[in-house]
């Protein structure tokens, strides 16, 4: 009788523990999933930034800025000095 009572209590404890662990599992899994989605978004962001970088560092843009904003030009032959052969 007493043993049964103890076992019953143990059973209750374990049952609650199971429920709790399942709950914890789901909570953490949900968190993991959110983080995974975050990873993907960050990846998209990386690509976007790479594209932007590529666009900003494009030859066309550099040429335009060098010529128009900075008033740069190619050196003439007289301005070139040969350092070594």
């Amino acid at each position: 009788m007493r043993l049964n009572l103890i076992l019953f209590l143990v059973l209750i404890i374990f049952a609650l523990a199971t429920v709790n662990s399942e709950h914890q599992y789901r909570k953490k899994y949900s968190k993991l999933d959110v983080e995974n989605k975050n990873t993907l978004e960050l990846r998209d962001e990386t690509t976007k930034l790479q594209l932007e970088e590529s666009d900003k560092s494009g030859n066309e843009r550099i040429e335009q800025i060098a010529k128009k904003k900075l008033n740069m030009r190619n050196p003439t032959n007289e301005e070139k000095v040969l350092l070594s052969k």
Partner: peptide, 16 residues
């Protein structure tokens, strides 16, 4: 996948 040139400059990439 991305398409890159010989100096790893971006030539094509997918964006959302």
């Amino acid at each position: 996948g991305k398409i890159l040139d010989r100096n790893n400059e971006l030539l094509a990439a997918s964006s959302p």
